[in-house]
Design a protein around this nucleic acid. Structure first.
Lengths: 201, 201
DNA sequence: GTCTATAGAATGATAGAC
DNA sequence: GTCTATCATTCTATAGAC
């Protein structure tokens, strides 16, 4: 019943860790079980002891773990935002928090794998990404409602505004992580987001 | 010197067409040269006559063609937009035009391949996507400037606003095409975009 | 649980006839 | 230009010793 980590658990974890790394770097199909075994330092047959259904079971496990890890809530409040500048600052902070999520190697790799190997996944497995984004819209919409500076805004405009803000964040994340292959948060990126927030607030 | 299509050209085209289809559907690594030859109805050795460097040369050719095909300019003008409603309508039209680009099978497949096989491509090959998006920002920013209703807007806000609009479009395109696997333009999607445009205009 | 050895099938690519 | 036949590798997965 205790949470002791056995030697064999370590082997299983190592296989998952190496697989996640290689799937993200080279893609699922291009990564061979041999490469995984070699990098993980485990023998040929061993991975079929932990994953009887073979390579694809490893992928499923990785994607499943990625889903769970990412259920994180933002720890911010907008109820002390009395000026647009306050709000802008707070939203920039949220963007940096989101970016920080992808600084965690495991989160970043799960994200890349989910997009790149979309065709190997079920709709349910890919859905976590949309759910995280919708959750973010909900969270930001709720916070906007509590911002003193936005009290005069019509009730039905909070969600669309939150959606626009998430779109701004999402575009830059996809452009940088998926296309430019860049995980470094640069001043240039922040300088691009700020005027956009100014325009919509 | 004439533009006559020889029999052999047709063979080459067929190989490219089938490859594009299968790369987009199953991924590059999961698509075997045998599958391509069989579907294209060509013999085993023939693809090495047209593509001496083999499978990867086919991928390169497909991505290169995708880049060229997509350099399309929007044929719209905003200089008759005297109300926000006019502008909103015109932007919805632009979104539908962009969506229409992906109704073309070849464009859609090139897009999916570029994202999914990103790690097999050079930065230059992946860059066309960013360039198309930046071109779109430029185009929309220029048009916004010519809109009578927006004449009072500060000069330096046109580009950020255009960028926000492109972000709104891009989010829904990525969500639908890459994650939901949906190419159908639904009323629900339009109903989601409209209030966002209202909020930012 | 962990290992070695290998089966059995599939892969990308080539040689050479026509 | 197009074909058939096949090579040399490599792959996933399994069998069975320890």
């Amino acid at each position: 019943m205790s949470k002791n980590v056995t030697k064999s658990d370590q082997h299983k974890e190592k296989i998952l860790e190496i697989s996640r790394e290689m799937f993200a770097k080279h893609g699922y199909e291009a990564t061979t079980t041999r490469m995984i075994n070699q990098e993980a330092g485990t023998a040929e047959g061993l991975m079929y002891y932990y994953f009887p259904h073979g390579k694809h079971e490893i992928l499923d496990t990785i994607v499943c773990q990625g889903i769970i890890n990412r259920v994180n809530q933002l720890q911010t409040t907008f109820n002390d935002c009395y000026t647009k500048a306050d709000l802008e600052e707070r939203l920039m902070k949220i963007f940096e928090d989101i970016w920080q999520v992808f600084q965690d190697k495991e989160n970043y790799q799960s994200f890349v794998i989910t997009i790149h190997e979309r065709m190997l996944l079920s709709d349910d497995q890919a859905d976590w990404l949309l759910q995280v984004l919708e959750g973010l819209v909900d969270e930001i919409a709720g916070q906007l409602k509590s911002a003193p500076i936005l009290q005069t805004m019509p009730e039905d405009q909070y969600r669309p505004l939150a959606r626009v803000i998430v779109s701004i964040f999402q575009k830059i994340i996809y452009d940088e992580l998926l296309i430019k292959n860049n995980r470094q948060l640069t001043e240039q990126m922040k300088a691009q987001i700020r005027p956009q927030l100014k325009v919509v607030l």
